[in-house]
Design a binder for these strands. Structure first.
Lengths: 236, 236
DNA sequence: ACAGTAGACCTACGGTGTAGATGTCATTGA
DNA sequence: TCAATGACATCTACACCGTAGGTCTACTGT
């Protein structure tokens, strides 16, 4: 009893399992993780699923929607404990989660930061709005006014987005090279024009994303505390 | 004497002016401003310039490089006064400039935040590194150590990037609608799941990007001052 | 038993980026 | 002066893209 015996249908392979939105998105995510957003085409996704590319339009009316779906599934991994009385600790946790997602799926980040630019807030996939709602809930329960809660959310979200973009830009060009200047390829920069940058080679090479995130949050929360406080300031 | 009389060359139109890298990038920027990055194709750009699409490869070896060029020209509009003794004031100026660029060319922002993710620092267009070098120079002259200067730069740059992404996401769906909830389309959100978000309709509608940027910078600089200081702390 | 329908498939259209060959000058070197 | 050299523009062609529209099949509810 060989696999071929079941080839009732023409050229496609797995076929036994039904095609769901979830499995489609999972496969799409895999392709993006491997080859980036550019690498994902409907034809290739169809091939990966052993289905005709056109079948995909059963579960996503358009490719853009499919990309939104991928962004959504990734973002949905965030969990916010709205019951926590310590809003700062909770936000710190979310930030670390977010960084984790970014490192696990770096190729999805362009999607995450870019898609909302062309989609009004209310038309975004609900899954992407859920963390927003949860954080608002958390902050308001912690005693912030609505306006301040939104302000904190924006500062926080802008911060982690910025941090992740920063961190993902730190790409080492020649990992095997021992000299920092060469490893980062900085020797290519004209010495006259970029003395500071070149001098920072070793500091750049020693970049520690996790530490930088913590430090940035220290900065952020110091600033936030100095500026506004919830009515019930301390953890429950 | 009609225009047609000059049609020595086949189908293309302007032709008299030579095709330079600069004019090419300017035309590309115009198309992106109008129709977004998706709207830019080599064929369309060629049409806009009255040249064969293939001519473009004389000034950019690939489309990706052309996009980098567009990002570069936009970013090159930033000016940093490295001689200023008041580093905070100078950074605030840069931030406002950056926001200005973002509002003037919103469709370029995806390029700005996305392209560096696939390009090691040392291989980026020099124009995009110049602001970085200048800010490092500014900070070091102000008395920061190299490490701290880099840290400040990263916090700052992450912040403005995050802010701009936040601000550009605030798209109003039905500008003519008077009720905030309807104008933002928030009525589409399930009431049970998104009570906080829906309640914030009027606050969201009153978003003021410039004010938010200033507020965010207050937060940021408060935090930075509390955390580290240059050896020569006050403006010259 | 039959109509309706949901899901998958196929074909085809107008687009894309760009490799490679060809044409057309202007400048140079002998 | 003429030939050669290069720079630049053009054309053709290839493999790929997203997706509109039609068709086939198999199951569902009546």
């Amino acid at each position: 009893m060989k696999v071929e015996d079941f080839k009732v249908t023409p050229r496609t392979t797995p076929k036994n399992v039904a095609l769901t939105r979830e499995s489609t998105l999972r496969a799409a995510l895999e392709i993006i993780d491997e080859d980036g957003v550019e690498g994902l085409s409907m034809r290739r996704l169809g091939r990966a699923l052993g289905r005709d590319p056109m079948s995909l339009y059963r579960h996503a009316t358009t490719k853009a929607e499919l990309l939104d779906g991928v962004a959504e599934t990734v973002l949905a991994e965030l969990t916010v404990d709205t019951a926590s009385g310590d809003w700062e600790a909770q936000l710190r946790t979310v930030a670390r989660q977010f960084r984790g997602l970014a490192l696990a799926h770096p190729n999805v980040i362009p999607l995450l930061v870019t898609r909302p630019l062309s989609t009004p807030l209310a038309m975004r996939p609900l899954g992407t709005l859920r963390p927003l709602e949860a954080i608002l809930e958390l902050l308001i329960r912690a005693g912030f006014s609505e306006v301040d809660a939104l302000h904190v959310y924006r500062s926080f979200f802008g911060f982690i987005q910025g941090h992740v973009l920063n961190e993902l830009q730190e790409i080492v060009e020649n990992p095997e090279e021992t000299d920092d200047l060469l490893r980062l390829g900085l020797h290519r920069l004209p010495l006259r024009e970029f003395p500071r940058l070149r001098a920072l080679a070793s500091v750049l090479a020693a970049y520690d994303g996790a530490a930088e995130l913590e430090r940035g949050m220290d900065t952020l929360f110091t600033g936030l505390h100095a500026q506004l406080h919830p009515t019930s300031p301390s953890p429950a």
